[in-house]
Design a protein around this nucleic acid. Sequence first.
DNA 1: TCCTCCTCGGAATGCGTATTCCGTATGCTG
DNA 2: CAGCATACGGAATACGCATTCCGAGGAGGA
Lengths: 340, 340
Amino acid sequence: MAVTLAQVASLAGVSQPTASRVLNGSARTPAPHVVEAVRKAADQLGYIANAQAQALVRSSSRLLGLVVHDIADSYFSTIAAGVERAAEERQLQVMLAVTGRDPLRELAAVQTFISHRADAVVMAGSQWSGKAATDVRGRLLDNLERFVDDKHGAAVIGPRVEGLSAVTPENRRGAGALANALLDAGTRDFIVLSGPPGLVTGAERTAGFTAALKRRGVTARRVPGDLSRDGGFEAAQQVFAELPSGDVAPCLFAVTDVMAIGAAAAARLAGLRIPEDVQIAGFDDIVTLRDFTPGLTTVHLPLEEMGYRAAMLATEGAGARSERAPATVVLRESTLNPGS
Amino acid sequence: MAVTLAQVASLAGVSQPTASRVLNGSARTPAPHVVEAVRKAADQLGYIANAQAQALVRSSSRLLGLVVHDIADSYFSTIAAGVERAAEERQLQVMLAVTGRDPLRELAAVQTFISHRADAVVMAGSQWSGKAATDVRGRLLDNLERFVDDKHGAAVIGPRVEGLSAVTPENRRGAGALANALLDAGTRDFIVLSGPPGLVTGAERTAGFTAALKRRGVTARRVPGDLSRDGGFEAAQQVFAELPSGDVAPCLFAVTDVMAIGAAAAARLAGLRIPEDVQIAGFDDIVTLRDFTPGLTTVHLPLEEMGYRAAMLATEGAGARSERAPATVVLRESTLNPGS
DNA sequence: TCCTCCTCGGAATGCGTATTCCGTATGCTG
DNA sequence: CAGCATACGGAATACGCATTCCGAGGAGGA
């Protein structure tokens, strides 16, 4: 057993409450000689307060729950870094849950956080639409609703959710701006690698992109695929396979940078040069792109800051607040037209 | 306030212990109709057990502490993914702490974990030698020692530590094998980007590399630098600046892939082609390299598996065990010699 | 000098749960 | 039908700590 406050008190020759007052911030400060005696005893015994017991009586655990789909994905790990920074500032400990895009695991994660009486929860991860997901999601939201009603905080990174704080990336707007920028550069032929059907983030980006195109009289085909490097790879391969040989390849807009990277790999494998034979654009501007060649055109999202802001909103306690994360187009070599 | 077991019991018309027996696995199972009544009441109220209270009485928190230097670094995030997988298997919740390579924050993180009475702790992060670090580290190890004496588990990813479990990457051996492979390929001129002075991992890799070189009569200069992309960038820039123009550049061995990526960026900026004008090799084989061009020669480490194994060792309870993580040389284009 | 107010330690209590211990009711054996 | 074992629900308790309440002692004012 670890050292308890009572043991420290006993060694110091005082009562347990007195030891508590000395060691763990209290409104009352005992006399100097008592303080010293307790400090000495605690030091000698190597006392470390039991956070569980403190949480139980204080009804605050100093814990922050973070839900991500895949911590090895640099999109999420960058967000996690921002959340961590905020947590550090707020003196909170982060509990991490990885869901692998499984709504059931997502639900389980949130329940675990509630079970640990986390002070706040941040959910970074795209949402699903559709029946099956909606059912599980309903239960998840029920839980979160009760959670915030109990004076806890919850924030989502993604589309707004009724009653929760949110940091919402400008998916539609960013994708639309990208489409316009590409159109301005003279590109006319597009294919959207749109991610898995039912995924809100992918759908929004696809919608924003195609809507902007349509406004200028251009249409684009959509090719679904998993929201991963391999998903992008396979989707792109499919596109290339169907391509009439000799034709100029279209510009591929992958709704995610990791998909774009996969698409770039597929292009390389197919012997297509970027951007001469095929153009590629992504979304997110993950840090990996910094040294990726050729430079990938993308839409920048302040991921670290988004994590930070979400964690701050979740821990502010002032009800549900929403913020938008600005998306900015970043044009790089991968969409360069020969003319310009 | 959240729903308590007593409330559930009251609604179900039974006593609190009975409700406890129904809802949270006990040796005794109440009568079927009682079970049903309790289940129904719990469902109706949306009862979620208070993990803090359970931890207090069970003296097991089902928490696993993970210490990393930088969660946004794909080296650590990959390890974290492995730890998460193990935690999921063991039904543990991961608490994440980020230290930014600061020994003091490392100490604070471990104390927080102990304070939360984590069942196990995994420390992924290179260790420091030197006086200042040794002092803080001593206190850290004192804490961990008491921790494991209390029937808890602790594992380190990195050089072995007395009394703790460890997953130790073959730094020396891997770096030596890389040196030999490069020598075999005909390369003779090397510079080691050795990371920050005092960092054990960097030192080991540097030592393994130079020792293998020396065995075959080759010596190499060392250039220190931060263990990051920018650190590699700056170190490489320094090397290039000192390079007599027209000379063939040496092969740069960066003790970390992220440094190697930085070095590659510096090379590109300096107008040096890889591998024609300068060769570059790294260490770790982080996932980012998969689609990096040119393909970077490196030493592969099974990072995800290392995280997994460390977490398993930490939670096995069978005293301190050690494993070695195999390092395998991966030759790619970045060290191709024109002759071969 | 006496009374009041304030200070400061300690005893008691409660946080939510698991578990030990008891008492009662039931089933079974002889 | 008597006697005993067994099953099952509830009261009590402990986990480690913060906090409220109380009592004793001291300081200050009248």
